[in-house]
């Protein structure tokens, strides 16, 4: 998992204790994927078990520092040199929802598409506002946060484009379908939906 490698890569810069690691991680990712300190210590314990980090003493306040080992450095290099696996697509609730919706009679699929697009555009507006407020991209941590925001922006945009595409495909499929029961039902829900708006 990326948290493990991410923390390891941070330790390559200098030994740190759990709370510091969490702050450094979140400075770069803007709390997009929040970590709790417990998670950080569990991860550190696993990294230590695997010989990738080792205890590096305590400071006066009793913070337990961890440092990276040679094996850990090699693992960081491998992480950066290896593309992220795309073999198993992550589970996508929206794709699953639409795939099921088109096969279940009586579902207003265009309504599902439209509501999702509005929600995703709103999320996209939120990310864009965060971007508008972000600081100087010449600072490494700000640049890191901007890249994370860009990733969220492009993913949301891709989803919207896909929804547009679904809408066109659904309209075409509805037009091609022989005039039996289904188009009548779809027309009724479409009309009901217009009335609601």
């Amino acid at each position: 998992m990326s948290v493990k490698q991410g923390l390891l890569a941070l330790l390559e810069q200098r030994p740190m204790y759990g709370y510091q690691l969490r702050s450094e991680f979140e400075a770069r990712t803007g709390a997009t994927w929040p970590l709790n300190v417990g998670q950080v210590y569990t991860t550190l314990a696993r990294l230590e078990r695997d010989g990738l980090v080792e205890p590096a003493g305590e400071d006066g306040e009793g913070h337990a520092f961890y440092g990276i080992t040679d094996a850990g450095r090699a693992a960081v290099t491998t992480w950066f040199e290896t593309p992220v696996s795309r073999e198993t697509p992550p589970r996508d609730e929206l794709a699953i929802k639409l795939a099921i919706a088109v096969t279940v009679p009586g579902v207003d699929v265009r309504g599902v598409v439209q509501r999702q697009r509005t929600a995703t555009i709103r999320a996209l507006q939120d990310y864009t506002r965060l971007k508008a407020r972000s600081g100087d991209s010449r600072k490494p941590a700000e640049l890191a946060w901007l890249l994370v925001l860009d990733s969220l922006v492009f993913a949301a945009e891709a989803e919207i484009r896909w929804l547009d595409h679904c809408e066109v495909r659904l309209a075409r499929a509805a037009a091609d379908r022989p005039a039996t029961t289904a188009p009548a039902a779809a027309a009724t829900t479409a009309r009901a939906e217009q009335v609601q708006r």
Partner: peptide
């Protein structure tokens, strides 16, 4: 492009000459 539309305060969707939705 939704990415650019997201800089707006409001996004209006048109289809067939009508407003179908608005954030």
């Amino acid at each position: 492009e939704a990415r650019h539309a997201a800089w707006a305060d409001r996004v209006v969707f048109l289809r067939d000459g009508r407003t179908v939705d608005e954030t």
